[in-house]
């Protein structure tokens, strides 16, 4: 699971109102290089929750993303490189996603988060 996917997942246990963003507990990360596509990054940027991405990256030890992004930075090669790396190249292979409200853990196994809810959670 990459951080682009983390950015669109939330906890939807019945009654939870602040299930986003999910915390990350990482026991194994993998980095897989992929081709940087500046056009795609510029297009996806306005659709992301930047703070969620930045905080998630931070919790994985990736400290190169700034708190605020100025439009001009989307033309900057270094920024795009760090953005691309955090969003698309780092994979959470083993660990868990944590609901910020209830602390419920959603396990991540072989890169796949299990978001299935128990009967008493729906």
């Amino acid at each position: 699971m990459r951080l682009i996917t983390h950015n669109m997942l939330s906890c939807n246990i019945k009654g939870v109102t602040n299930g986003y963003p999910l915390g990350i507990e990482a026991s194994r990360l993998e980095t897989k290089e992929s081709e940087l596509n500046p056009e795609f990054l510029r297009k996806i940027f306005p659709k992301l929750e930047w703070k969620a991405l930045r905080d998630a990256a931070h919790s994985l030890g990736l400290n190169d993303l700034p708190e605020h992004v100025e439009p001009s930075m989307l033309e900057d090669a270094d920024f795009l490189k760090n953005f691309h790396h955090a969003l698309l190249e780092v994979h959470l292979e083993e660990g868990a996603l944590i609901c910020p409200e209830t602390g419920r853990r959603f396990p991540v196994t072989k890169g796949v988060p299990n978001m299935l809810l128990n009967e008493d959670e729906v």
Binding site: M1, R2, T5, M8, L9, S10, K47, V112, P113, L116
Partner: peptide, 20 residues
């Protein structure tokens, strides 16, 4: 090819935002 995979029920889809 690289596909992101999520195990979830579509009845209770844990989804945010306009990314897709």
């Amino acid at each position: 090819v690289e596909m992101e995979l999520i195990q979830a029920s579509l009845t209770h889809l844990p989804w945010r935002g306009p990314i897709v």
